[in-house]
Amino acid sequence: MTGHVGGARPRGASPAAGRGGFGARNVWLYFAGFLMVFGGLMMVFSGISAIARDDVFIPTPHYAYAFDLTGWGWIHLVLGVVVFCAGPAVVRGALWARVVGLALAGLSMVASFMWLPYTPFWALVLLAVDALIVWALCTAPGLAD
């Protein structure tokens, strides 16, 4: 018995809707949370490598944004840890985590853009991951409900 009058489910309702299962809402939140954990780990690793050895990265000369590589490493490390920690809260469906996730993914996109002269491929991968995080968090129903 499904708990609905007459034993039938309302039209358009999925079996997982309303019980925290693997419904459409949760799919996008799981996707965004997984990408946040993955993207956070990638940022942590790039931050550690920038902090550990400055000679690993070769900056492009005459780049408009010339920043200290160790400073960027700390920014990536801290931002990566925060993004990584917010990922599981997004999976649990916390509204505050979705809002924080959107803000963090936006900050991460800016940091990855500024990271382009040091590791172009890695920065582009992080930009793509962050764009998918923003898309998944905005696509999942329930943010404006």
Rank of each mutant, 00 (worst) to 15 (best):
F45E: 06
L41G: 04
A64D: 14
H4M: 01
D54L: 04
G39T: 07
L69F: 10
R11E: 13
G23I: 12
M36G: 10
D55Q: 13
L29P: 08
D54R: 13
P61R: 06
N26R: 15
G21K: 10
F67K: 13
F31Q: 02
N26H: 05
F38T: 06
W28Y: 11
S14F: 04
P10R: 08
D68Y: 12
G33W: 14
L69M: 10
S49T: 11
D55E: 08
L41Q: 04
G12F: 03
P59C: 11
V37D: 00
F34T: 15
L29V: 02
F57D: 04
A17G: 13
D55T: 14
F22H: 12
V5K: 00
V5D: 02
V56Y: 12
G6R: 05
A32L: 06
D68N: 15
G21W: 06
I48W: 14
M36Y: 01
R25F: 03
L29Q: 04
G6L: 08
G39M: 11
S46Y: 12
L29D: 04
R53G: 01
Y30I: 13
Y63G: 12
S49N: 09
F38R: 02
M42E: 15
A13P: 02
I48K: 05
M43G: 11
P61W: 07
F22C: 08
T60W: 02
V44M: 05
V37F: 00
T60L: 14
A17Q: 13
H4R: 01
Y30V: 12
M43C: 01
T60F: 09
P59A: 11
L69V: 15
A66S: 09
A24V: 07
A8P: 06
G20P: 03
Y63R: 08
M36V: 08
R11L: 12
A17K: 09
T70D: 03
A66C: 01
G18T: 15
V44S: 00
Y30M: 05
G71I: 10
M42G: 02
F34A: 11
L69A: 15
W28D: 00
G18A: 11
R25Q: 14
N26E: 14
H62S: 15
I48S: 02
L41T: 09
H62G: 02
I48Q: 05
L69Q: 15
M43Q: 14
V37C: 01
R9Q: 02
Y63P: 05
R9N: 06
D55C: 03
P61Y: 06
P61F: 03
F67D: 13
V37Y: 00
Y63Q: 05
D54P: 03
A50G: 01
G39L: 15
A16G: 06
Y65W: 08
F31H: 13
F45T: 04
P15E: 05
G47P: 02
R19G: 08
A66E: 13
G39F: 12
V37W: 00
G47Y: 06
W28H: 13
R19V: 15
S49A: 10
T60Q: 04
G47R: 11
T60R: 14
Y65G: 03
S49W: 06
H62C: 09
M42Y: 11
Y30L: 09
A8Y: 03
R9L: 08
A66Q: 10
G12V: 04
Y65C: 00
G21V: 07
I58Q: 12
G23V: 14
R19E: 14
G7E: 05
